[in-house]
Amino acid sequence: MSAPSVPAFCMRLLRRQLVLAVRRPVEIGNPLLFFAMVVALFPLGLGPAPDRLADFAPGILWIIALLSNLLTSDAVFRSDFDDGSLEQLLLSPQPLYFSVFAYVCAHWLVTGLLLALVSPVFALMLNLPVAGIAALFFSLLLGTAVLSLVGGIGAALTVGLKRGGMLISLLILPLYMPVLIFGTAAVKAAVDGAPAGPYLAILGAMLSLAIALAPIATAAGLRISVDA
């Protein structure tokens, strides 16, 4: 039996990850539920004045998206590390870069993409002007992909550790900051009537850079974690 080609292998990995995720719908729902609950915290903490909430809405929505992405990225490699299939993956002839990319894609599809899809609902709850909603959707779409890629690095470096949960946030939150800056800036620009395009373009540039480099670091991190 010959080894499957790289694209076929990656598609299989991606399908496997998605099937695993769909089998446990609660796990898919958890980040969304988290998103909804934290959105509810802000009016309670800041007061319900609509104009004030609208002012803070881009930042609030982006920070929550960032946190829910962070909380789920810990688990990207965890179960496969525990049952040993990660070791199998490292031994397979396919380049680890692409396999890692498949994992991260699956993570993004079940968190980032869904968050972006439901974000307009929460944006309306926080009184974000309608003009900003399209920018929010597209900035989340691009930005959460960067977050998933960067989060993969942290997940790979901490997957072998017993208490990785808190550590991963310390490692990758500083790396999330540029995405947060440009994501909120895109939404704010759209709300103010300025074009959001340039910010989305910068997010796209970050995404390209992350696609090129992050899987390399993730692959290196996985090798280290499995060897340890």
């Binding site: 072998g160 310390l170 490692l171 670091a217 991190g221 280290i224 340890a228």
Partner: peptide, 19 residues
Amino acid sequence: ALYEAYDNKEAASKACAVL
């Protein structure tokens, strides 16, 4: 923090190098 979290110091320094 990453260095201190690893028990295996060789792996710890590799992980820190990547980070």
